[in-house]
């Protein structure tokens, strides 16, 4: 199967504001898709609609369909909690739970699904931290407060918390924009590794980052999906002039 998530004629409104206009596109499994575009183009809105984060936003309305595997995630019968377990989210600012230890942070999402025994918990914590390349840095202080970690470490901890619940898709909203260059490169490398197991959709303002980490790039402008294609093509020979002007720094 070559599509993990599919937008079909997706529209998102906030009151009178038509934020995303009839977007139709596919997200390939085990690959990284970057969504780029100037502020207010609707890229974060698209990302958030994929795990139903607009459900509780007053005045927000979503039409069209988002198909995840064979499931329409906006179908009335679908439990949003299930969707969010399958489709995880990593935010711009690292947001570990401040009162919790590193260990408990990793398990925070997993525990919502019910009680787990000690051995299972240990395994999940170790596996998740190893997967985000944080294990060696924190294995001796798992009970320490998560706020003791650096920003980059906190962000990797948040990614560990996301993958601990075994999602299939990971949404990332500017995951490295609050981090220093080295931590940013670590996150980028991690993204490259994570795509073996997950489908990753990333929103970023940093075009070089999109060019570096993604396989496919979608360019949004004023709520319209202007162009979507192989990243190497979008950044060298895009089809649309608007895309070219944006990636070359001529407007946006």
């Amino acid at each position: 199967m070559n599509t993990k998530v599919q937008l079909e004629n997706l529209n998102v409104y906030f009151g009178q504001n038509h934020a995303v206009k009839s977007a139709t596109m596919d997200f390939r499994p085990n690959s990284v898709t970057a969504i780029i575009g100037p502020s207010g183009c609707g890229k974060s809105t698209v990302l958030r609609s994929i795990n139903r984060m607009h459900d509780l936003t007053p005045g927000a309305r979503v039409t069209g369909r988002i198909i995840f595997d064979d499931m329409d995630i906006y179908d009335r019968s679908i439990d949003p909690v299930l969707i969010r377990r399958k489709i995880g989210m990593v935010f711009q600012k690292p947001n570990p739970f401040p009162a919790m230890s590193i260990y408990d942070n990793v398990l925070a999402g997993y525990r919502l699904n019910g009680r787990i025994d000690r051995n299972e918990a240990d395994e999940i914590v170790e596996a998740s931290l190893k997967r985000v390349a944080l294990w060696d840095e924190v294995k001796d202080r798992l009970r320490a407060n998560s706020m003791e970690l650096s920003g980059g470490q906190q962000q990797r901890l948040c990614i560990a918390r996301t993958i601990a619940v075994k999602p299939e898709v990971i949404l990332m909203d500017e995951p490295a924009s609050a981090l220093d260059p080295i931590s940013t490169l670590k996150i980028e490398e991690l993204i490259e590794e994570l795509k073996e197991k997950y489908t990753i959709i990333i929103v970023t303002h940093n075009m070089q980052q999109a060019a570096r980490v993604s396989d496919v790039t979608a360019f949004f402008y004023l709520g319209d999906l202007i162009e979507c294609g192989e990243t190497k093509k979008i950044f060298t020979t895009p089809d649309r002039k608007q895309t070219e002007d944006y990636i070359t720094g001529r407007f946006g």
């Binding site: 070089q208 950044f235 060298t236």
Partner: peptide, 10 residues
């Protein structure tokens, strides 16, 4: 210094 893209890169 600019990490050019698109037609600038070409």
């Amino acid at each position: 210094t600019r990490q050019p893209a698109g037609r600038d890169l070409r």
